[in-house]
Design a protein around this nucleic acid. Structure first.
Length: 591
RNA sequence: GGUCUCGUAGUUCAACGGAUAGAAUAGAAGUUUCCUAAACUUUUGAUACAGGUUCGAUUCCUGUCGAGACCA
């Protein structure tokens, strides 16, 4: 039990004796005391007045006196307006630090017997990954890390959209304009090559539309009748019928893309436990449609299309199978959901997908609930905001995207430039340097993407490079490197007894901050928000740097003081490393 | 047109309904015989607008204006 919970409990227990009435713990609001006031923990008294039947000051006084008298951890109290500020004894904080340091951890994570499946990334195989995917990947990986650190068994899944009309577009364009070009002959990554033909398709398609409009067609007619789109549709039909030539082309081009993706994933440092392919799951949904018709959850229109009426739930009628019997997106998702459950029997199934699909996932969950799927209630849409450019949304077709590989490369170069100017690592080998620049560049990128509330959209200006100073990954990494440097120079036993030295205010602040780790870790999980850990790691780094400036560590006056400060340094470094490792950011020993 | 998000310093982000709205960056001014100055210290600067609920509203409700997404 942490100190916040302990005080809350104590207040609940005190109520009958103090005021002759009961109180439920929900009514008790406990905050950290703002820095400008004396105290550590603040109890807001206003909500309790109904139960104390006394004025704020008197109620606060009684509670304060009780806590000081009955709880050895509470040293003193003061009252300002309706706020009861409690001071926790320095001994409590110090003892907690000492114990945690010995056990090398603050946490007592209880393994939960629950499986959480996290689906993220989920790319299309007709184009390379861009910044939007990078946010998805970084978030998905971090979220899995958060659940894992909280004791859940996690499965990271990637559902690859490897079929459909968009794939046929790039296949067709390559066939028509490619002259047999391959990643080897063109010397580009496979996903880049395929993406090039996707753009190529669109270029020619637009040209044909323009020609048709010039010859008197409406825009709508032109879009439907352009020869290229008709050919692509024909190719899709052939694909669905298993035409051997089309299948061969499809397999060849997809394998190029997978080779390219593998490189990008590796550079990003993300991975997966299970990969699903839509080409293997898209048919499964159709049997569920049959089932839904039998259960009268779905209904069939005269044209044989199948629908579900969700108006009673505040949504619309939604198509689940087209009149020609082909699947729509949601049909495939129904099938994949069943497959995931039969594979992993997960308790929670989290979809890391952009907020543009909020409606889609509401519908998906509702349908599966109506079909009595046991996993339906455990489905969650981790809905994150889009990454927008100053000009607006990124569009692959129009080439207005920030390419993932380019971005990673740019970040690593920026890290290289800034590091070399400082000249601190001239003794590094080339390999060590390369690894360091990668650590810093990716650290900056991931931190940038993770520091924001996932639900909010991010504005990214490619002209302004991602910062390496201030509230950034490298700032925290630098602080870690500092702690390591101190540890390298310290000659002595880190595990020696530090005694009970009087603490400098910044030291105390540091200990209190470190104390919060389990609370933050839990919060990041229940709120599904990795940015909580990012923010926490930053706070630790900031406070440590202040401590570093305020207090001399290795040249401390007394030996016990030195040992304490070295231990604080060690623990801080380990904490930074732990937080960062959970969300997928590396830390360097030197930088 | 319908549904759903979102409007906080010049800019990018914080703030379970709690105290004097925090950071970073940009701007101004400082800190290096000493553990890594990618650091530290000081300083300027914001809740779109109008109502309502509340002891208390950036937060909840209503309307206006503005941005975005989805559904046709």
């Amino acid at each position: 039990m942490n100190i916040y919970e302990e005080i809350q409990d104590a207040v609940v227990k005190a109520f009958p004796t103090l005021f002759g009435s009961d109180i439920i713990s929900d009514k008790i609001t406990i905050n950290d005391t703002p820095k400008e006031f004396t105290g550590d923990i603040t109890l807001v008294v206003f909500p309790l007045l109904k139960f104390t039947k006394k004025n704020p000051e008197e109620s606060a006084k009684l509670i304060g006196e009780y806590l000081v008298a009955n709880n050895s951890k509470v040293d003193a109290y003061n009252i300002i307006k309706g706020f009861l500020n409690l001071s926790v004894s320095e001994k409590y904080w110090l003892d907690d630090f000492t114990n945690s340091y010995r056990q090398n951890s603050h946490e007592k994570i209880i393994a939960k017997n629950e499986t959480v499946l996290i689906e993220y990334s989920s790319p299309n195989t007709n184009k390379p990954l861009h910044l939007g995917h990078v946010r998805n990947n970084v978030l998905g990986f971090a979220l899995a890390g958060v659940f894992n650190a909280n004791g859940y068994h996690t499965v990271k899944a990637n559902l690859i959209n490897d079929r459909g009309i968009h794939i046929c577009k790039s296949m067709l364009a390559w066939q028509k304009f490619g002259n047999g070009e391959t990643p080897q002959t063109a010397n580009v990554k496979g996903d880049k090559l395929v993406g090039k033909y996707y753009v190529e398709f669109d270029k020619h398609y637009k040209q044909q539309i323009a020609e048709l409009i010039a010859s008197g067609k409406t825009t709508e007619e032109a879009e439907k009748q352009a020869p290229l789109i008709l050919e692509a549709q024909e190719m899709l039909v052939k694909w669905e019928n298993g035409d051997s030539q089309v299948m061969e082309l499809w397999q060849k081009m997809n394998s190029w893309v997978y080779d390219g993706f593998a490189i990008t994933y590796k550079n990003l440092g993300v991975d997966f436990d299970k990969i699903y392919y839509e080409s293997e799951t898209y048919l499964l949904g159709k049997t569920i449609v049959e089932e839904g018709l039998q259960k009268n959850v779905f209904y069939k229109k005269d044209d044989c299309s199948v629908w579900i009426d969700l108006t009673a739930d505040g949504l619309d009628n939604k198509l689940v199978l087209r009149a020609d019997g082909t699947s729509v997106y949601i049909t495939q998702d129904l099938g994949t959901a069943d497959l995931k459950y039969s594979d992993f029997k997960m308790d929670q199934s989290i979809y890391v997908v952009g907020n543009e699909q909020d409606y889609h996932f509401k519908v998906l969950k509702l349908i599966l609930q109506k079909l009595d799927r046991p996993y339906a209630n455990g489905m969650k849409h981790f809905s994150y905001g889009m990454v927008d450019l100053p000009e607006g949304k990124m569009k692959s077709r129009e080439g207005t995207v920030v390419d993932a590989d380019d971005l990673i490369g740019d970040m690593i170069n920026a890290a290289r430039e800034q590091t070399e100017v400082l000249g601190k690592i001239d003794d590094f080998t080339e390999e060590e340097k390369t690894a360091l620049f990668r650590t810093i560049g990716l650290g900056a990128l991931k931190f940038f993407l993770l520091r924001v509330d996932p639900k909010k959209r991010i504005l990214f200006d490619p002209k302004e490079s991602i910062d390496l100073h201030g509230y950034t990954g490298p700032f925290v990494q630098y602080t870690y490197a500092r702690t390591r440097s101190v540890l390298r120079k310290f000659e002595g036993n880190v595990n020696a007894d530090h005694g009970n030295t009087a603490l400098h205010p910044t030291e105390l602040e540091m200990i209190k901050l470190l104390y919060k780790y389990p609370i933050v870790l839990n919060e990041a999980c229940t709120e599904m928000n990795p940015s909580k850990l990012i923010d926490y790691a930053y706070e630790i780094a900031k406070t440590y740097n202040k401590f570093y400036a305020d207090c001399s560590i290795l040249a401390a006056d007394k030996e016990e003081q030195k040992i304490f400060r070295v231990q604080l340094t060690d623990f801080t470094g380990k904490m930074i490393r732990k937080c960062f490792s959970i969300v997928g950011i590396e830390v360097p020993e030197r930088m």
